[in-house]
């Protein structure tokens, strides 16, 4: 599904990613751990294709196609989707309109909003005055409407209260077809700080990013426990 080879990326003239290699197969979910500022979000933004993330070297292959320099919206159309950590507010644009714009089939987004008890937000302006949890729900609804093949999630659990974690977890499971045990086609790459999402979503692999490099790869739960016990620095020393 996704193959990244020796990817070097600059942001505002500063080298942030320093030779990333990663492979995410069809139906696989990977987790990305790492300190603040280590480059996790930069990796997601670069995969999605945001301006300002300058690829200096290396390539990104998606579904066998080189998308390294492909415009953002074309990547979205190919089946890449991203949940923003802090999305902007769109004044005057209702969530209803936004969901319709995202929907791969007409009305899909609205139905989902109703299904997840979010219909009272349909006529609110996108993200205006939304709480942390509401922003996440709104992002995930948009993604579900969009129905991407590779979902990029940037800290989906941050700012979400305990009560809503179940719902968020459930939405992510649906997005990644976690209830399908054979022939799963949806893949995911999830940034997580708290590891909380691992209680809801089984991940196939974990990676630790330190200073723009992926330093280890392995069972996500083992890695997360290692980080909890010894911190990221120790994690960097350990070689699997």
């Amino acid at each position: 599904m996704l193959h990244i080879e020796d990817l070097w990326v600059d942001v505002h003239g500063k080298e942030v990613l320093k030779g990333i290699n990663i492979d995410i197969g069809k139906g696989e979910t990977h987790c990305l751990f790492g300190k603040n500022g280590s480059g996790k979000t930069t990796l997601l933004m670069t995969i999605m294709g945001f301006e300002g993330y300058k690829v200096k070297h290396g390539k990104i292959m998606f579904k066998g196609e080189d998308i390294t320099y492909m415009p953002l919206n074309e990547r979205a159309k190919m089946g890449l989707g991203l949940s923003f950590q802090r999305p902007p507010t769109l004044r005057g644009v209702k969530l209803r309109d936004m969901l319709n714009l995202c929907s791969s089939s007409p009305g899909a987004g609205i139905e989902l909003a109703i299904q997840y008890g979010f219909e009272k937000f349909l006529d609110r302006e996108v993200n205006l005055g939304f709480s942390g949890g509401e922003i996440k729900k709104s992002e995930l609804l948009q993604l579900m409407a969009q129905n991407p093949d590779l979902t990029l999630l940037d800290e989906p659990e941050s700012g979400v209260d305990i009560e809503n974690l179940n719902v968020i977890g459930d939405m992510i499971r649906t997005l990644l077809e976690k209830d399908r045990h054979r022939n799963r086609t949806k893949s995911g790459l999830i940034i997580t700080h708290t590891g909380f999402i691992l209680n809801y979503v089984t991940a196939d692999k974990g990676h630790v990013m330190l200073d723009g490099r992926l330093r280890c790869e392995g069972n996500p739960i083992d890695i997360f426990e290692g980080i909890q016990k010894h911190g990221y620095e120790e994690c960097a020393k350990c070689q699997f």
Partner: peptide, 24 residues
């Protein structure tokens, strides 16, 4: 940022701009 937000959902730049102006 707002234009790219919409583009990440599959809209091209013109559609994204129109959506924002219409909202405004």
């Amino acid at each position: 940022e707002e234009i790219e937000y919409l583009m990440a959902r599959g809209l091209d730049e013109e559609e994204a701009t129109s959506t924002i102006v219409r909202g405004f």
